[in-house]
Amino acid sequence: MSIFYLLVFPGFLFLSALGLFMEYFDRKVYARMQNRVGPPWYQPLADIIKLVSKETIIPYDTNKKMFAALPVIALAAATTAIFYIPIWSSHALFSFTGDIIVVLYLLTIPTLTFFLAGWNSNSLFAGIGAVRNLTQLFSYEVPLYMGLLAPAFLASSWSLSEISQFYTTHPLLILLNIPAFIVCIIAVQGKLERVPFDIPDAETEIVAGSFTEYSGRYFAIFRMALDTELVVAATLLAAVFIPVFVANPFISFLIYLAKVFVIIFILAIFRSVMARIRMEQMVKFCWRYLAPLALAQIIINILIKGVLPL
């Protein structure tokens, strides 16, 4: 049964299919916002198949095993994180106290592999992209953690399943967490390296960032990892901030798909209305506005916890 969970549902196959479809949805919304037709629905799948069937070049002076292993590690980490997040009911497949931290760390691993991939590529562009990856990690990671821990403080639990159950029984308290939701949406945009935070792979400055030397199937796996991370991050936000579950698991699953669509739609709108900012602007923005906002949310939640009899 664990193999089924891992490989088929809600693991690798389901996440890949949903991730590819969400990439299409994201690109389509982006295209419609620019008043053009946009790609057909099979476009991400065609991209992946084409990349897999192309020649794979490994640069001469890299560590070849590491070069090949990094994309797989990124994909595996992003896929594993889904098991601790509630999807079709307020109970996740596996849960224990503190799994919210595990999920956040699992979602950090792809960024670290992007850094290592760029650093290992021995290319100037990839090296600059790798350093920017890490700098960006230090700016969005703290607001994201604080923003996701604020609802956990209110629910007095660090397990995602228990947080979802708490908010299912106290639905009005969801409204309290709206500032944290905004912080998390912006931070996730930085985590997924999308406009306005696509500084690590700014194609007009440093060609493709960390992925400059990646080609063929390794690049395809990296793209799959990014798509999977997009879906998992949207699932995480949906589970913590929009915990709407009904008793019927099938209808609950449809509600889950709708929630993911809404969150990715917000992310796509962000991507299409903004332009890229500079690195120091991003660090300044994250530490000067996002982190204090998340901190204020935590303080408010602690105070309300003292006032309300929960």
């Binding site: 053009r36 037709v37 946009g38 057909p40 992925f211 400059t212 030397e213 690049f219």
Partner: peptide
């Protein structure tokens, strides 16, 4: 540009020759 919208055919511009066809 959006006027001709080559992404309809899946055509995208890539910066690095490693990704190009």
């Amino acid at each position: 540009t959006p006027r001709f919208d080559l992404e309809r055919f899946g055509i995208m511009q890539k910066g690095t020759p490693r990704h190009g066809d």
